[in-house]
Nucleic acid binder design. Sequence first.
DNA 1: ATGGTCGTTAGACGA
Length: 273
Amino acid sequence: MPRVGRLAYCEAVRIATWNVNSIRSRIERVAAWLERSDIDVLAIQETKTRVDQFPFFRFEDLGYEVAHHGFDQWNGVAIASRVGMADVRAGFDGAPTWREATEPEARHVAATCGGIRVNCVYVPNGRHLTDPHMDYKIAWLDALRVAAEGWITDGPSMIMGDWNIAPRDEDVWSMEFYEDKSHVSPRERAAFEAVVASGYADVVRPFLPGPKVYTYWDYQQLRFQKGRGMRIDFLLASPDIASRVTGASIDREERKGKGASDHAPVIVEVADV
DNA sequence: ATGGTCGTTAGACGA
C-alpha cells in the first residue's frame, strides 16, 4: 500500500495535560519531556506569563505550534500541538470575571488539533470553603458546564486541565486532613460531576484506578516523598473519543528532583484519529 | 519551630 499521508498511518495520538507552574521557569524541563514522551498535543496550565514573554521558539524548534492565552504572572493557559492547530479561541461565552474585573481571567483556551476540539482549562482555586473565591470557582464551573453542553454536540472534543477538585475521597491522601478544606466539598464535586454529566467521561481513571493515584503534591512538607498527593488533573472526552482511548498514564518522574512543577503530566493515548 | 516550598516579582501575594 502506498503511503498517503501521516494521519493515514498514525496509529494513535498522545494527548497530555500538565500544570507546569510557570512555563518560563520550566521550559527546558517541558521541552525535554515533550521530546522523549512522544506527545502530540499538550494542554498547559499556569503558564504565568504574558504572551510576549512566552517561549514559543522552544516549542517551534520541536515541531509544535502553540496557542497561548495569558495576561500577566497569574493563571495563563496554552496548547502545543504537532497535529494541527485550528480555530484557536481564548475563553468561553459566559465565563465569569473575578469580582468587577472587565475581562475574564486567562483560564481557558481551545484549539482543534488532529480532529479533536481540545479545551484547556485552569479552574479557579476556591482557597477556602467560605472564601469569595469559592463562589467564583463554582460560578466558573457552572458556566463551563453550559459551554460544554454546546461543545459536546459540535463533534469530537475534550476538556482537560487542572480542575482543583478531587472528585472522590480516594483522590486525596487524607480525607481527615481535607474535610474542612477546599477541593473535596460536595459543592465542588457536584460542579465537576455536572460538567461530566454534560456528556463527557474521565478517560484516565479506568486505566489508573485509585486509591493512591495522584497528579499533584504540595511543595511543602515533603508531600511527594511521603506519597501525600491529590488527583485534581483530569482529561474528559466526548463518547466518540472516549471509546478510542487505549491507555493512560501519570508521569510521576516529572514531579521528582530540583525544578519540578508541583503537578505531574497526565497522558492518554487515542487510537485511530 | 504553630512553619516547613515554590512561583511571580521586589513586598507581598497566590497555590
